[in-house]
Amino acid sequence: MNAPERSRSLFRFAAPHNFYPLAGRLAPWFAAAALILTFAGLWLGFFVAPTDATQGQVYRVIFIHVPAAWMSMFIYLVMAFWSAVGLVMNTRLSFVMSQALAPTGAMFCFVALWTGALWGKPTWGAYWVWDARLTSQLLLLFLYFGFIALTRAIEDPRRADRAGAIIALVGAVNVPIIYFSVQWWNTLHQGASVSLTKAPSMATTMLAGMLVMAIAAWMYTIAVVLWRARSMILERERHTEWVGAVLEREAQLKGGRA
């Protein structure tokens, strides 16, 4: 008796007018957590963690680089997941979520590439090498761009949602193929000249700093995506009554404060 009731109460939030206030309540908490964890992680990374024996101070870029790379890959999976849910269950909110995730994923992808280049110059002597991981990260960035460009180019939101969902799923099927083909291509060409795998023994504080930063990246993503989803919902549902009521209430609150 209890279980179906609870599941119904969770499904309640699939409706945009229920999700909108919930997201508004939750987002500031995630943002605050992101802020605190970022400061804690950076403090751990820059002041507590010891200097690396072989790489010196340069290695400290991993406190931003590794969480960004993790997030960029994970967000694409979540995007594909929401796209599949949207196509199967026909829920508008799922498409909103997948489109709200895309810009953040692309941003993390770019940050990972950029910090990687800054780390590569002093360590490998080159900003860019055609290493398998770098190349597949670059192709992932192009997949994000394709998804964003397609969903923005189609004016009818129904068609944009579904077309974007299909390309996200096609991309998700191809990501492992791309990754392994690029890996094989690279090893065929130049052998294992550059390996990104770190020395196995990592100081505990280094690992702690990296994990704290990774959780901070999670919190940041959740907060930003909730906020972005909120404004997308307002834009899409602007003709409905509940949006009018919400906007009026918010205007009154602002007027009361002034």
Binding site: L139, F142, L143, F145, G146, A149, L150, I167, V170, G171, N174, I177, I178, S181, V182
Partner: peptide, 10 residues
Amino acid sequence: ALLVLPLFVP
């Protein structure tokens, strides 16, 4: 081009 070129890489 933007959509399919990354998929053509393999």
